[in-house]
Design a protein around this nucleic acid. Structure first.
Lengths: 339, 339
DNA sequence: TAAAAATTCGAAAACGTTTTCAATTTGACG
DNA sequence: CGTCAAATTGAAAACGTTTTCGAATTTTTA
């Protein structure tokens, strides 16, 4: 059916080897014959079979993106989509195809990461949305093919990571609240199987201590990054500690949940509670009131991920961490503390 | 490096052929030897090389998802992401890998669809976000490998489509406004290189005429599905036709733009303008006021797409259209007309 | 018990490339 | 004109599977 290198060779009156040489821009082919071959290729509409090529080169020019819980029902995509765009764009620019895999903790028990990689024959993988207690998290650092983790600070010879400077981001958020005069500041964090949660807690504490305020473990609530967790978070916090005048949320979605909760119980934001989120998802600027938050450079994270992946892959560089700066974006959900 | 079928064969003391047979669950192999081979496979951690398999079978077990303008800067993803999840989930369930390609009109001029397909060796493709005047739109229906288009009603022997019943959806939206007593109803449509725009216009007109109202071409504004277009749309419409009391938008994002515009110019929704959107993106329910809109079953569209794709691919079925029902979801941006 | 049929297996070709190695041609130079 | 190096080419092996065809073995049948 399709036209093969053999057909081209015959039509051009040269050997297969020669055709292969012009395809791969080798220099040792006579300009005359190169032109002839090129013309035949053009005429016959020949496109090399990438599968055959992959087989002999043992390289697929493909990077796998494995995402945990990529699902309609999870809202992680508010964060993930831009990262995906970045990954996709950069991979395409560098001549790699991107193949998508979603996985779950249970699926990870059935098929080990090694088996996954051996089966799929991707040249490298970037992993996103994975939890610290997921099996793949630890299998990936020991794997033979290069990988980069998004938001999990683990490195090895073949494993890099990229993430935002979360302690700095959290610190900026809390310092902003402190500068506004707030002293009793709650924190609705994510679950503790996310590295970012630990870092953001650190930043929260550093900001507090930097301002001479004491850290009350009781002021932090652990949610699951979902909207309802945010609502639940402020409910608990405000109930147990009515003195709290501001809350920092580890995700915009939880912040939105918090705002909705306040509003639905008759309060107003920021009058009754100042709020800072994290991520700067597109919702944040569209809301009413618009959400003050810490922006993550998600698209750039994606690009950086494949960038470092291919550095390991093609230049044999060893794994390393990459930290991107956060940015405080001021909107309408914070105001000075009024005693 | 890796262990091959040859290694297992040797270790199990059988021929390559036999190993292949147990791998592909052929029946003509002695249960005894099957067990033996299976054990060796297990012990050696053998995983078949899918590339080699693809080469000989001329099938990659891979479907391509080509998306036009998948980009950080385009907001189509509010619609696309759920569809993508559906595609991904169903493909995975059916044993296919999903590989992602983003394209642009200019890229489509450089590489024809045929070349794209020959190069990538995907077994089928689903296409999304593409415009009627994109080159691929017409190349795809004539291609030899099966494809399904999202939101472009074109069929051929190898080409199917799936889309929402847009005329019905638009009709439902406008009828809802009519039932509330509105008589002067504007329409902010999408650009005319989207099939959905044409259909939604039809629905708009049908609803009007069904209620004995006359259709003013001047009441419809053509935007580009982006937020700013929505703002621009109501500005034009209200300026030229202050009598308009309600507007139907061809996307939620444009509706949001419209609402923002009204609010920023001192008005209120729905007091000053009743608004219905289209899509039911996650923003819609989170906004203030929450957006009344027409829901599309996006996730199901994705699933349906690979479903029909694989039916063409594996059962040789011929292309067909698939229409999913819309749903009116009532929220807070519409109210009865008060003269 | 011999023939026929069914079961089980293996050798080798094929898939479409790249790559190695050696052969051939060309060109320069004395 | 002969020689040597450089430039250009081709034959064949290799990549790791599946599949075809037929052979060997076992079972069934007459």
């Amino acid at each position: 059916m399709g036209v093969t290198i053999r057909d081209v060779a015959k039509a051009a009156g040269v050997s297969i080897t020669t055709v292969s040489r012009v395809l791969n821009q080798y220099t040792d082919v006579n300009p005359k014959t190169r032109q002839k071959v090129l013309k035949v290729i053009e005429q016959m509409g020949y496109q090399p079979n990438s599968v055959a090529r992959s087989l002999v080169k043992n390289r697929t020019q493909t990077v796998g993106l494995v995402v945990s819980d990529l699902s309609k029902y999870r809202s992680g995509h508010h964060f993930m989509f831009d990262v995906l765009c970045g990954i996709n764009d950069r991979a395409q620019e560098l001549g790699y195809d991107l193949v998508l895999f979603s996985t779950t903790p249970t699926a990870q028990k059935k098929t080990t990461y090694m088996d996954f990689v051996k089966q799929r024959r991707v040249d490298g993988v970037v992993m996103m949305g994975i939890r610290l207690d997921d099996p793949y998290t630890h299998e990936v650092v020991e794997a033979s093919i290069p990988s980069v983790l998004i938001d999990v600070p683990l490195t090895s010879k073949t494993c890099s990571y990229v993430m935002t400077d979360n302690v700095k981001g959290a610190k900026m958020a809390v310092e902003h609240l402190i500068n506004l005069g707030h002293r009793q500041i709650g924190f609705v964090n994510g679950h503790d199987q996310a590295a970012v949660s630990k870092e953001r807690l650190t930043g929260y504490i550093q900001a507090l201590e930097g301002a001479g305020l004491s850290y009350h473990p009781d002021y932090v609530y652990y949610g699951n990054f979902e909207q309802e967790d945010g609502a639940q978070g402020v409910r608990c916090l405000k109930q147990r500690h009515p003195e709290i005048s501001a809350v920092f949320f580890a995700s915009d979605l939880m912040a939105i949940g918090g705002i909705k909760y306040i509003q639905s119980s008759g309060g107003q934001v920021p009058r009754d509670l100042s709020i800072v989120g994290f991520d700067d998802i597109s919702l944040a600027s569209l809301m009413q009131p618009a959400l003050t938050t810490i922006r993550q450079m998600r698209y750039e994270m994606g690009r950086a991920a494949v960038e470092t992946l291919l550095r390991m892959l093609e230049n044999g560089e060893t794994g390393r961490g990459m930290i991107l700066p956060p940015e405080l974006v001021l909107r309408e959900t914070t105001e000075p503390f009024a005693k």
